[in-house]
Nucleic acid binder design. Structure first.
Lengths: 189, 189
DNA sequence: GTCTATACAGGGATAGAC
DNA sequence: GTCTATCCCTGTATAGAC
């Protein structure tokens, strides 16, 4: 059943808003990305944004959800053999979308509040990510065993922490450092 | 030369404001810590806060600076032998000051903007921290060498990333996971 | 369903009186 | 050194036009 009429227009507007939001964040930083400015880029009023998304926080959460679908984190890990390179590829790709990294990092902090609309999102996404890592990354070296769940938390933490370092100093080599960590934890794989 | 008169009062007020700010953040979260509420705790108006610190961001940056002095990160690393345990002790201590962790994480993100008052602070503090780690932590295992600078970035990233995980889920065992990482990277130390 | 206009509460910041 | 008063901007709720 095809999408037609005003319904189709709404869907298009939604996408347009999500893209513009990410665009503004990338250019001006999360802090200065106001609903007013995003609305101006789209060519509507701030109220129009709130018509589609209930609040600013929900809008930004939706941006993150959308990118997860597009970039598709999970497919890269489906095969255990490509887990390492797939993971590094995602990190390398993040280098090219600073706005997305800024948004992700900022919401990671704000979502600590259980009342934040992204709270459940981060809980579920993180758990899913760690499960994938635990399944597809070989466990640690025999002489210093690290159980899969701990390994997953370490890798996730390092990736998130490196983004903080990279944001404040873009010369930081995120993929290189992550590769060094993974290889150090799995010398015989 | 003793501090007297109105000068002493100003210094006392400054300290009082810094403590109240951290207190409010701990109870209500960074997001809901307004100048108005902090001012109420101190017993003054928001304008008084801005008299001592130029802006809200500078006030919060000052809180972080003050805690660095009190908790004294560096002393714990002065001896190479106690580097590991000293580092873990700091992390364990952070568990008891959630407001400070929230403040640090939030400013870590905001300070990515070069115009943010905490930008230089984070650049210098991070570099100093990594230098200390690189000096006092033995380098990686022989079969998977990790140079000291990379090791320092990994440990710092993991510590910061773990704080994000812990904030959204306080059951996360930060010290335990950090210990596992350090031991895995330095099996023969 | 899509959107504008309007109004409001709250935030941080500024100027000037005391 | 501190407050009052004011200003502007933010996000948001509502009403109603199309």
């Amino acid at each position: 059943m095809a999408i037609r009429g005003s319904y189709a227009k709404g869907v298009a507007r939604r996408e347009e808003i999500l893209e513009s939001a990410l665009d503004v964040i990338g250019r001006k930083g999360y802090q200065n990305a106001s609903l007013k400015e995003i609305a101006e880029v789209v060519g509507v009023t701030p109220a129009a944004l709130l018509h589609y998304f209930g609040s600013k926080e929900e809008l930004f959460t939706a941006v993150l959800r959308k990118r997860d679908e597009l970039d598709g984190l999970d497919p890269a890990f489906l095969d255990a053999d490509g887990a390492r390179d797939g993971f590094l590829q995602v990190i390398r790709h993040n280098t090219e979308v600073p706005g997305l990294v800024a948004l992700f990092s900022r919401l990671s902090v704000d979502a600590a509040d259980p009342a934040h609309p992204a709270h459940e999102y981060f809980l579920e996404r993180s758990e899913r990510l760690r499960a994938t890592i635990a399944e597809n990354f070989p466990s640690g070296p025999r002489h210093a065993p690290v159980d899969p769940e701990t390994l997953a938390r370490i890798i996730q933490a390092a990736a998130d922490g490196l983004q903080l370092q990279w944001m404040i100093d873009p010369t930081v080599d995120m993929p290189g450092i992550m590769a060094a960590l993974i290889d150090a934890l799995q010398p015989e794989s």
